[in-house]
Design a binder for these strands. Structure first.
Lengths: 195, 195
DNA sequence: CCAGTCTCGTAACGAGCGTTACGGTAACAC
DNA sequence: GTGTTACCGTAACGCTCGTTACGAGACTGG
């Protein structure tokens, strides 16, 4: 090691730069040079840390998943009741402030990029299925008496609603204010008897 | 005019080629050459029909919206009751077969491309708001007695759910079979008292 | 039948891309 | 202090991109 040489920290900084470019410039401008500029370094460092551009994107994708997973587990652990846990976990999936809106844009960028990348689409499916299972588990805890079919259908309705709302709000923040999204979530939870 | 020279038909064929590339190769490979290859012509024709690549994308985006709008209006006109109209319109927004799954991938590709294109994002917002208003109108017809706030919240829950389901199913068809999506839709409509 | 116009394939341009090669410099071992 | 190693900025490579220029051929009006 020499100079700075904190490998994991640099990898994370570069991944943050990937998110930033993806959020503010889009997939088409997500170049190694743009990432390097956003990270305040040169392409030399980027290519020194990662064997190629794809590896950089895959790392950034994985890190984004890990970040949201930790946030969700924290929310789940500190919730007072199963119903509150469910609500908190779904709520963080909405795009109700600048940070979560950015995350939603980045998430969609990765999904769009996955169309032509087998490894990215595999990562998406793995992460998405674990997300779905988590919410099914939370719904089952909040409504223990339900038959499995209802638990699964309601959980599916909830995760797709949250994802769609995040996408809409990220693409049109003025049209989908935070209050509307939260009222929508509460309306849905109440309709399903989960509040 | 000479040679073939059916301008609107060629524009539509090229837009179809845009969708095809976007669906099967992704945004990163959506090049003028790839579109020309998918349309079975050369870049010469493409650049003869459209002043530049952006105009081609904008036209393809507009045509996609027009296509789904016509389909929705047909469904709405032929439905027996307001509740059936609502269900049919929401159902077509899911990704329950190869065609609608492809449409969902293309739709997401355009949304991802809109991050760095003011005109694309403006088109998205325009189309999305009219879509939202349509569903609000359908919900109001299906449940005439509701206060406006409930109508708006339920409509929002329904369109975001449909959009999220289409995105999830398009990215992971095996994980989100058509039957699951339809059961989810019926579960939601029933929970809201719209069936 | 001929001049003129439209169509569109071909070929090339400059810009920007991912990636590679190289070298100067900082950090450590002894 | 000196040799060795790892770090990373610089510069260049070959390639593909969007776009432009040009010309051959098909059509049309007179």
């Amino acid at each position: 090691m020499s100079r700075t040489a904190d490998r994991p920290a640099q990898g994370e900084a570069l991944s943050r730069a990937v998110w930033e470019v993806l959020a503010h410039q889009g997939l088409e401008k997500l170049t190694v040079r743009a990432v390097a500029a956003a990270a305040g370094c040169t392409t030399g460092l980027v290519m020194h840390r990662f064997p190629n551009r794809r590896a950089l994107l895959l790392h950034a994708r994985e890190l984004l998943h890990e970040k949201t997973r930790q946030r969700v587990e924290r929310l789940e652990a500190t919730a007072a009741t199963p119903k509150e846990a469910l609500r908190a976990v779904l709520r963080q999936g909405l795009a109700t402030d600048a940070e979560t809106a950015t995350e939603s844009v980045v998430w969609m960028g990765f999904l769009a990029a996955a169309v032509s990348d087998d490894e990215l689409i595999a990562m998406h499916r793995r992460n998405n299925r674990s997300w779905r299972e988590r919410v099914e588990r939370l719904v089952a805890s909040a409504a223990p008496g339900w038959p499995q079919a209802r638990t699964r259908s309601v959980a599916l309705a909830l995760i797709t609603m949250a994802e769609g709302a995040a996408a809409f709000a990220a693409a049109d923040p003025a049209g989908y204010p935070a209050a509307d999204q939260e009222r929508m979530l509460d309306t849905a939870l109440e309709a399903y008897g989960l509040i």
